[in-house]
Structures are given as C-alpha cells and as structure tokens.
Design a protein around this nucleic acid. Sequence first.
DNA 1: ACACTTTCCACAATCGTTTGCGGAATCGTT
DNA 2: AACGATTCCGCAAACGATTGTGGAAAGTGT
Lengths: 333, 333
Amino acid sequence: MQKRTTIKDLSRILGVSPSTVSRALHDHPDIGKALKQKVRELATALHYYPNAMASQLRQSDNKTLALIIPEITMFFFPSVIEGITQKVREHGYQLMVLQSHENLQQEIENIKTCINLRVNGIMISLCRDTHQLDHLKEAAEMGISIVIFDKTVPNNRFPFVGIDDKNASQKAVSWLTFQGCTKLLGIFGHPHMSISNQRREGFETACMQLLPTGGAFKSVHALNQADAAHQLHALWSQFEPDGIFCMSDEVLAGVMPTLSKIADNQAKSSKVIGISDGKLPFLFHESLHFLHHDGFKIGTATAQCLLNGLQMGGKSIDVPVIIQETPIVGNRQ
Amino acid sequence: MQKRTTIKDLSRILGVSPSTVSRALHDHPDIGKALKQKVRELATALHYYPNAMASQLRQSDNKTLALIIPEITMFFFPSVIEGITQKVREHGYQLMVLQSHENLQQEIENIKTCINLRVNGIMISLCRDTHQLDHLKEAAEMGISIVIFDKTVPNNRFPFVGIDDKNASQKAVSWLTFQGCTKLLGIFGHPHMSISNQRREGFETACMQLLPTGGAFKSVHALNQADAAHQLHALWSQFEPDGIFCMSDEVLAGVMPTLSKIADNQAKSSKVIGISDGKLPFLFHESLHFLHHDGFKIGTATAQCLLNGLQMGGKSIDVPVIIQETPIVGNRQ
DNA sequence: ACACTTTCCACAATCGTTTGCGGAATCGTT
DNA sequence: AACGATTCCGCAAACGATTGTGGAAAGTGT
C-alpha cells in the first residue's frame, strides 16, 4: 500500500495552504474561481482521492446505514436488499450488509462493528436465537437509530416493519376452505423463529374457526427446505391433506418437488397456497396461489422508517409499520 | 449522535496518559497488570467503543475487502457471497458488498468508493456494459489488489476466477447428443455479457462437431428470465427442439415453466440440461441435469486468490484460476 | 553502595481532513 | 482621501487513536 497523494501534497505544490485546497475541492465560495480550477486540475492529474477515513473522522459522520440479516439466501432477502439499497441511495447514504448466520454471537459481533464504525443506523432482521435485545439497546444508547424488520421478538420496543403474520395465515386458510378443502396441512419454518409461530398460530385459530365439522388440520415445523420435503413425505401416509399452506418460499421450495414426487392422485389435486415474495410460485407448473409478502416493499419501508428516524434526530416513532401483503395472487390467470 | 467516550476520557479519569490507555486495551506488555485491569473495567463501565475511523486512519489500513457485483439476484450470487464471506472472515477481513446494477457509471462510482475508503482489495464481476478496465487499473495503481470473477472482458490482464465456459457448453451438447437428441436449442443470457458469448460459441462449435447429419441447432439470447420464457414460446412453432441447453439458472427459470405450459408431447419429452449453481434444478418435477457451476466454490476461490495476492504485497499471480465445474449431475437418482 | 537491568508509563508527533477565526489586499462610495 | 465592505486565503486547532522515544522508579547482582 504505497503513499497516496494527499491534500498537503497538492497544497505544497500549488503554494497554498491545505485549508484552501480543501475548500477549493468543495467549491467553497471563499475561494477564487481561478484557483479552484487549478486545484481541481492538479487533483485529477495527481490522482488525488480524498481519504474517506480522515474526513469521516473529522466530521464524525460517515453517512452509512447497516443491514444485518441472518443470511443472504435466494429467498426473500435479495428483494429486501434491492428495496433498501434503492431507498438508502436516494438519500445519499452508503449501505453495509452484515450476516449473522443465525448465530447470536455473530449478531452481537456485528452490532459491535456497527458501533465501532459509528454507522448512523441499523436495520436488522433478528436471527432465531435472539430473545432479548440488550445488544440493540446498547447501540441505541450510543445514538444509533434502529429498525427491526421481518423477524423480531415478542416484546420488542424498537420500530418494526413487517406484515401481519397471523392475518396472512388466516387469509390463506380462508382461501383454502373457500376452495373446498377440509383437511389442511400447515408447514412452517424453524420453530425458533418468531414468524413461524405467529403464522402457525394464525393458521391454527383460523382452522378452528373456518373448518367445517368433520374437517381436520395439522401443523408442522420444518428446520429448512430439505426438512420440509422430508417431513411432508414422512407425514403423507398418516395424514393426507387436500389443502397445504406453506408459510414461506423456503418451505414451498421443499414442498413442491416432494408433492409432485408423491405418486398419488390426491397429491396432484391438493391445493397449495403460500406466503411468498412472488418469484418462486411462478416456477412451478401446478396452479399455485400465494399471499404476496413483498420483500422489495418491506425493504423500502424499512429504510424509509430508519431515515425518518434519523431526520427526527434519533427520536423515531415507536409505532410498528405493518405492510399490507397483497391479498391473494394467483400465478395463472 | 451524542458524544461518545473516548480514550482521552478514560485517561483523564484514571489519571494516566492516553497512550497508556491505548496500550492497556491492546494488552501491551509495557503496561502493568493491575492498571490493565482497571482500564478495562472502566472501559466497559463507560461503554467505551474504539472509534474505527480514527484507528483506521492512524494505521492507514482497514482490513476490508470489497465485492462488486451487478446485482444480488436469487441466482448464483447468494452462493458466491457465502463462499467469499467465509473465506474472508477466516482471514480477519471485513467484507463490503457493492452493486453496480448493470450500470457502468455505477461500477466506476463503486470503484471510487473503494479507493476513497482505502480498501485492501476488490473482487468484481463486471457488469455487461463494461468493455475496458481503466477504472480498475486506476484502483490497481493506487495499490489495491484486484480479482475478477465470473464475468470478465476478452483481453483482461487481471487475475481471474471462473469456469471454462466453452468447455462446459461442449459437455452439455455432448450429453444431449448422447441422449439421442438431434435438434438442439441453446438459450443464452444477455448478449452483452461475456459468458453469454463464450457459452454460445462453445455450444455452436460443439453442435457442429457432434450433431449427426440431419441434425440441427439454434441459439438465442434472452435479456432476462421473462425474455427467455417469451422467446422460447415464440420460437416453438418454427423450431421444435428435442434437446434444450440453458446457460444459466436465470434462463432455466424462464424456460421450465414455459416448457411445461406448452401443451405438446414434444415439449414434455424434450431433454433439458443447464449450467446451474445447483439449487434451482431440484425444484422442478421434470428430470433435469446440469453442469454444476458452483457459486460457493467460485466465491472461496476468488477470495483465496485475492488473499494470496495481498500476502505477496500486491504482486499477485497473473494466471487465471479455472474452477472445474462438476461434469454432469442428475437431480434425480 | 554502585552500576545495571527491568518495569512501567508520559510526551509528542502523526494519520489526512475540516473549519472557525482573523487578516491582508482590493474595491467601491462619498 | 478616508473608510467600510468584499474578496480571498492562511493559521492552527481539532477529530480519536497509535507509536517511537525517553526517562523515572524499582529491582537485581556484586
């Protein structure tokens, strides 16, 4: 890492003071037009690049927001990142993405990194083993704005962006029963995740309300995509549903191939509905409906929420933002 | 952003010099055991977090590597990021992910950000409109190590990590002909992308070599997933292939649903093979083979290549690293 | 008791920029 | 010609941490 040209270098060569060079480069009105020109020319000629660490230190601000998520999987998060990126860039901030890999220790480490770096704000989707928010409170006390999205904990006091999980599940059940299904299977994500339980509860209460007498339902938790496939397969001999609810794209990705592998007429004709970011359902042949859990929209809303909080000097609103998922979208018209 | 406790605060309270505090926190042998203890206690009591900007400025190094990619889509890149993250973290570096959104101007901007931030190295997959590498050369001259992966330009002189595109295509054609296909369709990505053309060329030459007399082939470029679907659909009436080669997951995602939508016996029985990261093919019912273009492996190899270059003081090897894709993997056993 | 290590810590410079303040030159006005 | 207003720029102190050097106190050996 060799020596790079600095403001001092420029100032020495031009015979002016460093402060003048700095002002010239920033188009400060105090500096004469002619001099500004010369400074700029020399700067490009000598490949001058302002040292971001130095200027950030001086201004003690780096215009950076952090995004902490469990993992950048192919499901959901790419959309979220896209939404956040767009909104964040519009407002002149840089985005830093950190992954916790579903590991609380790593999540804490990431928060520490954010504090050390003096980021302006944090958007975080909690990993499944996170149950209390001390590490976030620590960051908040350091003056960092925080917004939680998607995955949270029950008694969260930070601003939150997400969908109404229970309601979404109820809509799904409602649709299935409307289609005439009476034997429902709900497949949910990792049991440690907040949304898994929210959505399961919504599913179960809806089933109890909406299923006709003689109907039945069952709900299972899958640890991941492969486990969803495995559980569905293992369960089929005992419980053969005519309606299946998949709480996420990951579950759906496990379910669909398995479903078509089960050489059973019932399997072919059983209705499936999911909560989805809206990409995956279109890949399958089978008619497939889903509740649109729009990652992009959640991303922009989360970023917007954080930016609002920043403008209000950290005193952000405490009311959760609930994104309305689009009622029901069929992927075949 | 209120005032945070600094090393000076600690030193003032303890009645020692800032340098002593710094050394104590770094477990420097010059500092007495008792004092170290007191410093550390006060530090945690006062929620002291070292200001990363300050220390990075002083040491003029920030242990950060940048990853610049066109876009974080659901295809391929999540795996790549995973591989890179793992390798990079092992070596104590931070990773910064930047997206160019297939926009050269944005790519240049990202490089500039990297220079300003004084990152140690850059891993980049070029966006499709990038044809010359002046912006990368600029960064290289500033002492930043660079590795290009996946998407590159013809006459690249930087270290490169990727697969042998032509060879992969040839293997695909070879498999299709071995299956008895004689009328092949190759569907490729955006025509501006290097890999699109490499893979198409490989496809075409292989077709000419391997197809029996009477055989035929055709290759088309799709701008994106939806366009792949559309083109396949539009083309079907004129050219009805019995073997289809999809050069990427994105293309595959466009092709498969369309294929099953085409109510034609031929469509059901036509063989499909793709180059894939290895997740998507397992989602489909149809028997589907693919050449494993392993994103994770490419990620680790890219990061390793960059780290090697860093250790050798920026004088990195100039020989491209070619990852051998796993020959042919069937997704149903 | 003397010289000689160790042990432990302070001083001050430094990384590269930014910025409040002050001041010299130039200009315009009466 | 005198005087206030512009215009344009330098001085020096920050931002918060790291580090080479120097040196006082304490311990060791003879």
